[in-house]
């Protein structure tokens, strides 16, 4: 029956249900992903960010919180220029991390 309205899904992040498989896989290849302190330098410097929504900080956070499809969508905006790597104060090779993530997502498609 259609009541003309629906219940909107809760935006709550339920940490009990977050699947860490992708995050664990990423940390295997890119252990430095764990080091991110969410400072936002990478996103601030990203030339593509303002137009495409790409943000390395949000990609890492998204994967930590089980928002994998959102992370994947963001990655498509990256042009691999490497500016984010230059500014990351924790010395994370973010460009390499992006490439590794694309590879992991690629594996999933095959």
């Amino acid at each position: 029956m259609d009541f003309g309205f629906s219940i909107s899904p809760s935006s709550t992040i339920n940490l009990d249900k977050v699947d860490f498989t992708l995050y664990d896989r990423l940390c295997e290849i890119e252990p430095d992903a764990k080091k991110c302190m969410a400072c936002g330098s990478c996103s601030a410097t990203c030339t593509a960010g303002p137009w495409t929504g790409m943000s390395v900080r949000k990609v890492i956070l998204g994967i930590q919180r089980g928002k994998e499809s959102e992370a994947e969508k963001m990655l498509k905006g990256c042009m691999l220029c490497g500016k984010c790597t230059m500014v990351c104060p924790r010395g994370i090779n973010t460009r390499h991390l992006i490439l590794s993530l694309c590879r992991i997502y690629g594996e999933g498609e095959r």
Binding site: S11, T12, I13, N14, L15, D16, A38, L61, G62, R65, K67
Partner: peptide
């Protein structure tokens, strides 16, 4: 609130 995500969060 997971203020970095801007979303409420809960955990048991």
């Amino acid at each position: 609130e997971d203020t970095l995500s801007g979303k409420p969060a809960k955990v048991t």
